[in-house]
Every structure is written in structure tokens, then in C-alpha cells.
């Protein structure tokens, strides 16, 4: 970035210029590292504090003495308590179940639709793809009250399955949008060749488009996973007994009883609940970032 400033000085002291250029570059590099380090520290303060608190015993937390940022007597009792706590197991199981359903439903719907919108087309298909993008911009907090009535009408209030019905509406529009982008980038010659060889459309989708657009499918899957694992408003509004709750709501309603905050357990639960997303991102981050920023590189 700053490497060019030296060029402005037109005096041909080549050696001197080379040195100052070099030094400036090194300074810029170290400056960037230091500044980035500061940002990383700021960004990682809450996760670090979560970890520290989760390792503390209830007695250590309620003693309210000493430095809260470090743990004096690390213990795994909070984690052990949660793992053997039936309610927490239920929340975890519900979350996993709903997430699997949501991801499967969303991916089937959005891959089929994206294939049709990107390649086949019908009357009004371009309007539809714009409309799909627009529905992505309608937030959950605008729709949760009418949906409360609709869910009630379907008899699914306080049933965890209403989430499997509602989460796809949050995931499908954006997944379709990602997939349209990936499918349109596949050269037309490929499907012409497939058609000439006598492949049907579904065969073409299954044998050519899905394998070629695998990075896009991974990105869309991660998006659907993220949405359904972290959603908070719908379960908070529609579920109220502990056997139907998912993690995000269950942790709050179960471990906070009136004024009693079991912070150690809450933080341990947060860590355990954040584990799946963290693991997935650790391995598949590149696909997801590429899928999200596919537009940015071309804008």
C-alpha cells in the first residue's frame, strides 16, 4: 500500500531508495500484523471469557473474588453436569434433528429451483428469481406474529417440528441465490452435450450440475446449517415446554431460573452448543466464504 510513496521522489539514488522502500514495506507489514493482533484480541475476548467461566466451579464464581479473567481451580464439572443432564440432551438432540431436516429440505428445494431458474426457464422465471432474492430480505422478525397464528392453526404450537417447517423459509431464498450463481457459471456446452447423448433433465442435474457445482452446494449447506442452528426468535416464540426446545432457547430458559444464574453451566452449555458450527467452519470455511463473496469479486 505504502510501497509506492518512495517512487514519487524522482531523484535517482537507487541504493538509498531501495533501502527506504524495503524498510517502509517491512514497517507496513509489521504495523498490519500488530493492528490485526489487536483486532483479534478484541474479537476473541468474549469466547475466551466463555471458556474461562465454563471451567470454574459454582463456588468460585459466587465467591466473587480475584481476577475473573483467569480460572484458579479449573474443573470440568459444568461440562459433566450438562452431558448427563437429560434436558440438555433433549435440546441437543432436537437441535440436531431440526437442523438435519432443515438442511435436507432446503437443499432439495433450492437445488431443484436453482437448476430450473438458471438453466431451463419458463414464463416468469426471471421475475421469480428476483422475487426469491427479495424474500430473503424479509426478516423473520416481520413475520413471526402472523406465523404464530398460522402455526397455531396447523396445531404445531409448542411442537419442535414447526421449526422444520419454518426454518427452510429462512434458508431457501439465499441458498437458491447461491446455487443460481454457481449453476449459471457452468458452460452451456456441457448440458448440450448431455442432451445430445440423450440425458434427461434430472439426469443432467444429478450427473453434471451437482458434481460440478459441489463448492456451491457446500456453501449453501453451511448457510442452511448456520441459520437453523442459531435461530432464536422462532423457537422462543413458539416453544414453551422443555421437551420441545432447541439449544438456543433451552439454555436460556433452563439454566436461568428467576434470579439464579448458573453462569458456569450457561457458559459451558454455550461452548458445547457452539461446537458444531465451529468445527464445520474450521474445515469448510473456504467454501463458505467463496460462496458468500462470489458476487463481491465481480462487482
Amino acid at each position: 500500500m505504502s510501497s509506492s510513496t518512495a517512487v514519487a521522489g524522482a531523484v535517482p539514488h537507487a541504493q538509498h531508495r531501495h533501502h527506504s522502500l524495503h524498510r517502509q514495506r517491512a514497517w507496513a507489514l509489521w504495523g498490519s500484523y500488530i493492528a490485526l493482533g489487536c483486532f483479534v484480541v478484541m474479537f476473541l475476548v468474549p469466547p475466551f471469557y466463555t471458556l474461562m467461566t465454563s471451567l470454574k466451579s459454582s463456588a468460585e464464581i459466587s465467591a466473587q473474588q480475584g481476577n475473573p479473567w483467569i480460572v484458579h481451580h479449573p474443573t470440568l464439572e459444568n461440562f459433566w453436569y450438562l452431558i448427563t443432564y437429560p434436558n440438555f440432551q433433549t435440546y441437543y438432540l432436537n437441535s440436531v434433528m431440526i437442523t438435519i431436516c432443515t438442511v435436507a429440505i432446503s437443499m432439495v428445494i433450492s437445488v431443484l429451483a436453482a437448476f430450473s431458474l438458471a438453466r431451463m426457464g419458463f414464463w416468469g422465471s426471471s421475475a421469480l428469481s428476483t422475487g426469491v432474492f427479495l424474500t430473503y430480505l424479509i426478516p423473520a422478525s416481520l413475520l413471526f406474529l402472523p406465523l404464530f397464528q398460522i402455526v397455531g392453526f396447523l396445531g404445531l404450537i409448542n411442537s419442535v417440528w414447526c421449526l422444520a417447517l419454518l426454518y427452510p423459509t429462512l434458508a431457501v431464498p439465499f441458498c437458491t441465490w447461491i446455487m443460481i450463481g454457481y449453476f449459471s457459471s457452468i458452460p452451456k456446452e456441457l448440458d448440450e452435450a448431455a442432451l445430445i447423448d440423450g440425458a434427461g433433465y434430472l439426469q443432467m442435474l444429478w450427473k453434471i450440475f451437482i458434481p460440478v457445482a459441489m463448492p456451491g452446494i457446500i456453501a449453501a449447506t453451511i448457510f442452511a446449517f448456520t441459520v437453523s442452528w442459531g435461530q432464536f426468535l422462532y423457537p422462543l416464540a413458539y416453544l414453551y415446554t422443555s421437551n420441545q426446545m432447541v439449544l438456543t432457547v433451552g439454555i436460556i430458559s433452563d439454566l436461568i431460573r428467576g434470579d439464579v444464574f448458573q453462569w458456569g453451566k450457561i457458559m459451558a452449555a454455550c461452548l458445547l452448543a457452539s461446537l458444531p458450527p465451529i468445527l464445520i467452519y474450521a474445515f469448510l470455511m473456504d467454501y463458505y466464504v467463496a460462496g458468500l463473496t462470489a458476487g463481491a469479486t465481480k462487482g
Partner: peptide, 8 residues
């Protein structure tokens, strides 16, 4: 997930 980090 935002709901969890907000707890922290």
C-alpha cells in the same frame, strides 16, 4: 450463534 455469544 448470536444468541449464545450474547449470553457471554
Amino acid at each position: 450463534p448470536l444468541a449464545l455469544s450474547t449470553l457471554t
